[in-house]
Amino acid sequence: MDRCIAVYKNKRYKAYSTGTKGEISKVKLFLHRAEEGFIPVMSAYDKDLYEKEIKKEEVSELYREYFMARYKNYEFFVVAHFMDRKEIEIVTVDPNIGRECNLNYQDRDLFTKRLGSDDDFQLIHVKEDLLSKSTTRKEVTLEEPYVIDNEK
């Protein structure tokens, strides 16, 4: 899970921010239903997608959140959660680390591995505040990502 969230007029939206030299200038909000000010857009991934472009000053919060896993003294990006099996999937493009940690070779320099409750790892929720440019990291349990992923 890797997503960007904006709080606009006390509502949470999926978001995408644009800018130059690390400074955010505009924010796009996305919805799956028509609302005032939102226009329909084409998407290869989402059905019935609507967007609205606003200025950075109009949002009260803008953050990106994702999960990392510390496994065998390395940090890996978590690309999937499997609720039914209580597992996560980690990924790296570094072939040296992939081989050292016994990750499964996928393609070229892509290595993945599923980790479950029998594996020794730490799951970390990362939240990057894009307005204040601060980052918080919190260790979580295997059950917590499902709650965070499904927040409305």
Rank of each mutant, 00 (worst) to 15 (best):
C4L: 14
I5N: 05
A6V: 06
K11T: 10
K14Q: 15
Y16S: 12
Y16K: 12
G19P: 00
K21C: 07
G22T: 11
K28A: 08
L31S: 13
G37S: 13
F38Y: 15
F38N: 09
P40S: 14
V41K: 12
M42H: 13
A44V: 05
K47G: 12
D48A: 04
L49N: 07
Y50C: 06
K55C: 04
E57C: 01
V59R: 09
V59D: 09
Y63Q: 00
E65A: 08
Y71H: 00
Y71L: 00
K72V: 02
N73P: 00
E75V: 07
E75Q: 14
F77A: 09
V79G: 09
H81D: 02
F82C: 05
R85V: 02
R85K: 13
R85W: 03
I88M: 12
E89A: 04
V93T: 08
N96F: 08
I97G: 02
C101P: 01
N102A: 05
L103T: 08
Y105W: 15
D109L: 03
T112D: 01
T112A: 01
R114H: 00
L115G: 03
G116N: 10
D118C: 05
D118E: 10
D119L: 00
V126L: 13
D129M: 04
L130G: 00
L130M: 10
S132F: 06
L142W: 06
E143A: 13
E143M: 12
I148N: 11
I148G: 07
E151I: 06
E151G: 07
K152I: 10
